[in-house]
Structures are given as C-alpha cells and as structure tokens.
Amino acid sequence: MDEDSGTHSRSALEPTLEHVLDLEIEVEDPIEIGETGDGQRRIIPIVDGTVSGRIEGHVIPAGADYQLFRVDRPTELVAKYAFETDDGSRVYVENRGIRYAPPETKERLRDGKPVEPDEVYFQSTPQFETADPELEWLTQSIFVASGIRQPNGVKLAVYRVA
C-alpha cells in the first residue's frame, strides 16, 4: 500500500492492445457430425480469405473450424488453418475461442443467416507458427481477436497484447 495516498501500488504494467491484422475468412457449408453429448459437433471448411495489416496475404484453402455448437451455452470454436503472405511465407494459425448469443440469435447464426455484430460475443486467442524469421514476432506474443460472423465467413480483428 502506498502510504501517502492510501492506495495499492501496481507491481505490473497494465496490458495494452496493438491492432496488427485483419482476417476475412470464407467458409463452406458445415459438415454436421451430430449431437455428441456436449453439443452439436460441426466442421466448417475454410476455403479462402485475405490477410491485411502488418502482413498482407491470402488464406490457404486447407483448414477448418471445429465447432461445438450449443444453444444455451457458449459455442466452442477451434479453427486450424494457414495463410500465405504476399512474399510467399506461410503461417499456421490455431485459433480457439467462444461465441455466445441469445438462443434465437445463435439459431440464426447456425443457419447461416445474418445477425447484427453487437448481438454476439465472439472472442478468441489465435496462436501462430512460422518458419520465416521476419514473422517470428507472431510467435513471441499473446494475441486476442474479436470476430464478426457473416453468412459465408468470419471477419477477425487481431490484436497483440503488449
């Protein structure tokens, strides 16, 4: 406690967010696995997209979002995919998150219908792997992303926690 002010002093810096990337990801229709006991398992193929910001490039059509859809609880998201920069470097992404909305909104989302972004809590924590030394900064920080679900894809704003 700070004796002069009577308040507690901070021992760590408060984190800040630095916007580094925007991802626009295009998906195909879900592959429905079915009710597995903890929710409706679905696999959503990732087929295209763009990367912009500190890195420019495109999403490689070789990934998927492995979702556990739930009506009354948050939907679990685990997206695994890659992108290639305009310079030819490749980056693997594993992005875990949750999406939560009222049941009627979630059903519209599940059915691929549009919803207003402020109706949905959609946050995630992407992790990156790359062999390019110029992009090693992607492997040296924690990142968070805020998402917007669209009928045929997802928009993600990615921030570095500093």
Rank of each mutant, 00 (worst) to 15 (best):
P126N: 15
P74Q: 00
D111N: 11
A157T: 15
D38Y: 08
A157F: 04
E18Q: 11
D87M: 03
N152A: 10
Y66P: 04
D86W: 00
G153L: 08
E119S: 14
D4K: 13
V20Y: 03
H19L: 14
A62E: 09
G147N: 01
I60G: 11
I148M: 09
G49W: 01
T130M: 08
Q123F: 14
E56K: 12
Y159L: 12
S5V: 08
T7A: 09
R160K: 15
P61W: 02
E32H: 10
A101Q: 01
I60Y: 10
N152V: 07
G153S: 14
R10T: 13
W137Y: 10
P114L: 05
Q127T: 14
P15C: 06
T125G: 14
T130V: 08
V51I: 15
I60M: 14
V115D: 05
R73S: 06
D132T: 06
G147W: 00
T16I: 02
R149S: 11
V59K: 04
E26N: 10
L109G: 02
S146V: 13
V161T: 09
R90C: 05
Q127D: 11
A131C: 13
F128L: 05
I55W: 13
I31T: 12
R73Q: 12
H58P: 06
D132P: 06
G63F: 01
L17G: 14
E24F: 03
G63L: 02
I142Q: 15
S52F: 05
T105Q: 02
L109A: 02
P30V: 06
E24Y: 06
F143Q: 11
P74V: 00
D111V: 01
D29Y: 12
S9E: 14
V93L: 06
L21N: 14
G53Q: 11
E134P: 05
A145Q: 13
I142N: 15
P15A: 06
P126S: 14
R149T: 04
E134N: 14
L17R: 14
L13P: 01
D48E: 02
E3M: 14
G88Y: 00
L77I: 15
E3F: 13
